[in-house]
């Protein structure tokens, strides 16, 4: 599957602008709610019309504002999984699938194959209201695959599922899609990381970044994208020496090489190390608040430095380690490993 998108559409709050090339990859569009991600998918499916631009799927032009081409959705061969699945409520599971079949031959057999493949045996005659969320999603997927799409679009596919079911479907989805590539929209960065090769980060209709997932998480190209990708500790920074930056808001100097022109520095909560002994880039700190999860704890701390402003930083630590440190009653140090600092 090869997709090339370059579109612009004016929305009430902002203008959506997206440009991307996809070639045999699974891609996620990641962004907060209301950032225009679903609108982007709808434009690709043909449900909404962009103001300007071009969409090409496998050498087929779906939309081209200059040449006045705008294929209707029914001729695009683009499958779209809606957030609420949008099953036909007056049709049984079999009927929902059958109506999407493209050719007239072997309909019963094709339906049976899809029913089996999507684990819907025994539910053929059931109406959608009687199905659980997971079953509804599988029917929607089966129906989508029945139409033999060339491109698969998933709009927040797991937001209506909870707990175990969500994890199960995240595992099974690539297999159910037959290894077909998909383009997915989500606001959950872990979901985006799990299920895609490349990630496009979006905010207020603007593309902030588009890259392979590891590169994107390790080296976000700008501050806004880094924030959406989960960066919580950020401050202004001034390069004072080739190997040293001043971080006024945290009130400290940090040893740090790399980029010479620096405006901000940041570090992921997972990369801040809390320990009982000092080291490179480490400062005495005081824990202000703790947010406990099952196996980790998020510590909100303040550096014990005179010039520091009232800024809270966060660190995520293993809970057992935290319990151990807490018992000791030692003073605590927060350490910012130079290789984990992100410079902008």
């Amino acid at each position: 599957m090869k997709l090339s998108v370059d579109i612009e559409k004016k929305l009430t709050q902002f203008t959506m602008n997206i440009r991307m090339e996809i070639d045999q990859e699974n891609v996620s569009i990641l962004g907060p709610s209301g950032s225009g991600k679903s609108m982007a998918l709808k434009c690709i499916a043909g449900i909404e019309k962009p103001d300007r631009g071009r969409i090409v799927l496998n050498d087929r032009v779906l939309f081209d504002s200059e040449r006045g081409i705008n294929l209707p959705p029914e001729r695009r061969r683009v499958g779209y999984l809606f957030q609420n699945y949008a099953l036909f409520p007056h049709m049984t599971v079999s009927e929902n699938i059958e109506i999407a079949l493209q050719n007239a031959w072997n309909r019963k057999k094709r339906v049976r194959e899809l029913i089996e493949k999507f684990h819907l045996l025994g539910l053929e005659e059931a109406y959608p209201v009687r199905l659980s969320g997971g079953e509804q999603q599988r029917v929607a997927l089966a129906r989508m695959m029945a139409a033999e799409p060339e491109l698969i679009l998933l709009d927040e596919p797991f937001s209506a599922l909870d707990g175990i079911l969500r994890e199960q479907m995240q595992q099974k989805l690539p297999g159910l899609l037959h290894g077909n590539n998909y383009l997915m929209v989500t606001h959950d960065m872990d979901e985006a990381y799990r299920l895609s090769d490349n990630i496009l980060v979006m905010e207020n209709g603007k593309m902030l970044a588009f890259d392979a997932r590891e590169r994107l998480f390790d080296h976000p190209p700008n501050l806004a994208a880094a924030r959406i990708l989960g960066l919580r500790n950020v401050s202004e920074a001034i390069r004072v020496q080739e190997n040293m930056i001043l971080v006024p808001q945290w009130g400290c100097f940090l040893e740090c090489g790399g980029k010479q022109k620096v405006s901000h520095v940041g570090i992921r909560s997972q990369h801040v190390r809390i320990s009982t002994s000092p080291g490179v880039n480490s400062f005495m700190c005081e824990i202000v608040r703790i947010l406990e999860d099952r196996f980790t704890a998020t510590l909100f701390f303040r550096l014990l430095i005179k010039r520091t402003r009232d800024v809270l930083l966060q660190a995520i630590v293993d809970k057992e380690r935290w319990e151990y440190m807490k018992k000791g009653g030692h003073s605590l140090f927060a350490c910012f490993p130079p290789d984990k600092l992100l410079l902008f």
């Binding site: 709808k42 499916a45 043909g46 449900i47 209707p72 959705p73 029914e74 001729r75 695009r76 061969r77 683009v78 499958g79 779209y80 809606f82 609420n84 949008a86 099953l87 036909f88 409520p89 109506i99 999407a100 493209q102 929607a140 129906r143 989508m144 029945a146 139409a147 799409p149």
Partner: peptide, 15 residues
């Protein structure tokens, strides 16, 4: 529901 009609169109069904 709008999305039911939209999904029908993406499935290639005629008007």
């Amino acid at each position: 529901d709008r999305s039911v009609i939209d999904v029908a169109r993406t499935l290639g069904l005629s008007k």
